[in-house]
Design a protein around this nucleic acid. Sequence first.
DNA 1: GGTATTTTTATCGGAATGCGAATTAAATAA
DNA 2: TTATTTAATTCGCATTCCGATAAAAATACC
Lengths: 392, 392
Amino acid sequence: MRAINRFNVLDTIRRAGSIARIEISDRTQLSTTTVSAITASLLDDGLILARTEGDLREAATRGRPRVMLELNPRAARVVGAKIAANRMVFVVTDFCGEVLSTLTLALRVDRQPIGVIADLIEDGVRRCVVDANLALDEIDSVCLGLPGVIEHRTGHVRTSPIFRESGVDFAKEMSERLGVTTIVESDAHAITLAHHWFGKARDLDDMVLVSLEQTLGLGVLHGGQLFRGAGGLSHNLGDLTLGIGPQGTVRLASLAGESAILGDQPSGRFAEAIRLGRGMAHAKTLIDAEDNALIGAAIRAGEACGMALANIVTLFAPPRVILVGSSLALGQPFLDSLREAYSLAIPPSIKGVTELVFDQSTDETWAQGAAVVALRELYESPWGTTGPAPAL
Amino acid sequence: MRAINRFNVLDTIRRAGSIARIEISDRTQLSTTTVSAITASLLDDGLILARTEGDLREAATRGRPRVMLELNPRAARVVGAKIAANRMVFVVTDFCGEVLSTLTLALRVDRQPIGVIADLIEDGVRRCVVDANLALDEIDSVCLGLPGVIEHRTGHVRTSPIFRESGVDFAKEMSERLGVTTIVESDAHAITLAHHWFGKARDLDDMVLVSLEQTLGLGVLHGGQLFRGAGGLSHNLGDLTLGIGPQGTVRLASLAGESAILGDQPSGRFAEAIRLGRGMAHAKTLIDAEDNALIGAAIRAGEACGMALANIVTLFAPPRVILVGSSLALGQPFLDSLREAYSLAIPPSIKGVTELVFDQSTDETWAQGAAVVALRELYESPWGTTGPAPAL
DNA sequence: GGTATTTTTATCGGAATGCGAATTAAATAA
DNA sequence: TTATTTAATTCGCATTCCGATAAAAATACC
């Protein structure tokens, strides 16, 4: 009970950045008494800091000046990572989610044995932590964002395009290697929370995010919480069926996945660019040069995505949908056909309910989102009793 | 806070039917002290009853015998209704959700003016209440289950096949007519809760229900709660897009809706049967007589539903999906093609996660589900203070 | 039949939590 | 310097939860 209120107060402080107690009391509907008690204990635990200056109301007001409270950035550090097929991005962030150091590794890891991938990730985490002038034992938690179908609760990777194996208990594996609590989460969920904390959904507690990368993912925010299917499964949009043809089931991934657009044969025209992790950027160049085959693929992908998107909006009716991912880099042909298919497919009855927003975030933002996943768990953990010791 | 625990205890008693305090304490993780206090207040308010006999453990145990607690059926009465295009079914239930009286009106109401429909519903409610030997002021709440897209929170009917108008504030309209709090809810949500309370999802707090009627609806139960889109919108599966063809968007409803299967031209072969509300039953007869046109329509509908179903399972990954609705009456051709399309379209990665269950409930069950919607709100309301006076 | 045992339920006291009212703190305005 | 204003804290009270203990109500044993 107190835990809930503590979390609410902490979250209110985080959202505001800097806020006075009385304002917290306003927003949380808690009495000033209770807010005082909770903030006292948060200060005591070193999770927040008090600052005398910084009152936004023009200083020309009378009365006792407000004491602004804000998160203590040094209360914790976490590592967030985006693991993709051809690159890994790591960030170390402080308790506010501010990035302290970044590390990008451009290397193709998919279909390597688990051990190799784990080695690379372990190495990346360690290097990024060193870059932040920290030691691994100063890190409170690690979160890895992977593509695929992942059970958040258990850290079980059911399927992922970067693993040959299915059903990998990756959270356990990495926790043991690093000696730090490690969470495994869908990359789409990570970027969803990144947008909720820092991006284009800061003002919303309900929204849907669609990620168009190698894998097509979905994040649903419902009441400020990630909506996870029963069992904490992440969603995999690429598995959505568009039709059943003579060659079997046609899935969204086969039309709109990165490999579907670029073609992933080792001898394909994009083989070199893909290997270097610049597939979509290269494709964009060719599209600008009016490469008709590619423009056609982009248009077909856009149509398929637009339709799938309309169906998702039909089911969830969120006030906003954010589209992210490397496929957006394909530019006009893709985006226009997506928008058009979407507006054709969206049922009239909920037209106007949902706003489409496109966002081209950097990979660092995705990694930061993973860090947010880790931070949220810290926020909810029972600090008061025997949590990780806050830094001085 | 106490309200939450009160609700939990009450719900535990409801689920068990008859249960001793110590067992409640076990299941809710509350101390026996707290359970005693809460049950005392529930007894005081007349919401539950104590019974000395009925202990299921063979009477040959020593120790103080358990006092079994159960809901007081007389603590409240509600009306639930299923309003469909060609029929209305009303039930009056007691506090346990047991049906006290039923009334079925077989009449075609769709496309009538709102006022006419409201008249008919008002009349049905009043007659059903009289049939239960009650007066309207003994009814605590009314819930109407309608097809369409409905905002539960506000009782706003955005679109419904039975209304010509869109954006009708129907809850307000009926509340004023009846002088009783009236809730408007999607019929799919009603039958979802009916299955949670009495039917094939009694054991589950997470599941998905798909209703295949004139309208194709969806109910998602998540953590024991109905999952409603932002804004409390109900879902409308019929609006799901299957593809964009030359004639515009092809929606699921156009292949799998009742009118798509039977044809709804006034001069159609089923016109008479539909008018009498026996469309699907009649269709079944013809299918059994090997009417090829109809069998073809049923197969196409089944395929479309199976595909849509697979997509829903991909998104929600529930442990169980319950399919209900009049279309199930089409029999083998429909069901077999549905199952086949489903198993082709379901992605391998989540094969085995979800169990399909078919259920042919009577309309009364749907109305009972609407009653459950009303009862759930009563359960959560603050009885202790100034709620509706419990019957003696 | 009387006492011990067992099991369930109720009671008592302590700890935690939240809130309203009153109080204190710290600034500006007069 | 004093009054006013606004923010934050302190005090006292009411809830509510829980653990420990006591009471209740049955059977088991001698």
